[in-house]
């Protein structure tokens, strides 16, 4: 245990970064998922094609590759753009935080696209018809009937997406984000104790995932009070 002395605060800051990446990528993931689902469910052929391409690419390639390509790819593109304005610029560095956050949000968002699409289709057509027959507008029906019914359907798989997201934050260490795994690698070069240092990372991630699992269970219980729990 003494070997860990001096590393605790590094791990703590690493955990804070994990939490930050998780929060930011969660918001983006929901956004990408909803846009993807809306595109797939729309009547617009082009939107459908783009959304299909999105899910095929991001579900079909290794996550670590997506992170690397997005990081270096965006750096190349930004550098090229910057050089138009100032030819002296050698290299524009993309912050690993944002490159990594966007990358994992895009990856998990592609899975969420399918989840949200299925959940929207899972809303009973009868509820929607009843709302329309009562004179509610499509927008009112969407807000008051579809959304409240779809999130209950989407929640269990969505819990899995959140777990994927928090675990994927560890991959961002590869592009130099100083989250917990990155801290562990540094600590290992100094102390030469890989097992201990990696175990700490494992415990931190287990803490995060337990928190997520418990919250999802709580929300599920709340959502189901009107159905199974009510009997």
């Amino acid at each position: 245990m003494e070997v860990l002395t001096g590393w605790w605060d590094d791990y703590l800051w690493g955990a804070v970064i994990v939490a930050k990446v998780f929060a930011a990528s969660l918001l983006l993931m929901v956004l990408f998922g909803l846009i993807g689902a809306a595109a797939k469910l729309s009547d617009n052929r082009v939107a459908q094609k783009i959304a299909n391409g999105y899910t095929v690419i991001f579900r079909g390639t290794p996550e670590i590759l997506v992170i690397l390509l997005l990081y270096f790819g965006s750096a190349i593109v930004l550098t090229a753009i910057a050089q138009v304005f100032d030819p002296d610029i050698r290299f524009v560095d993309v912050p690993p935080f944002w490159a990594g956050t966007i990358a994992i949000a895009l990856i998990v968002g592609s899975y969420a696209t399918e989840t949200f699409r299925g959940a929207f289709l899972g809303v009973k057509p009868g509820s929607i018809e009843a709302a329309r027959a009562l004179g509610m507008s499509p927008l009112q029906t969407f807000i008051y009937i579809r959304i409240p019914e779809m999130w209950r359907i989407a929640l269990p798989p969505f819990g899995n997406h959140m777990l994927s997201l928090v675990k994927d934050t560890a991959l961002i260490s590869i592009i130099g984000l100083n989250e917990t795994l990155f801290v562990a690698k540094q600590a290992i070069t100094v102390t030469g104790k890989p097992f201990t240092m990696y175990i700490v990372v494992g415990i931190i991630y287990l803490g995060f995932s337990s928190l997520i699992t418990l919250s999802v269970m709580g929300i599920e219980k709340f959502g189901n009070r009107t159905t199974v729990g009510a009997r």
């Binding site: 009973k124 009868g126 509820s127 018809e129 009843a130 709302a131 027959a133 009562l134 009937i145 409240p148 019914e149 209950r152 009107t226 159905t227």
Partner: peptide, 12 residues
């Protein structure tokens, strides 16, 4: 107004 075969109450 309309009344449906399967009631179609809003379950939530």
């Amino acid at each position: 107004g309309m009344v449906f075969q399967n009631f179609n109450l809003f379950p939530h």
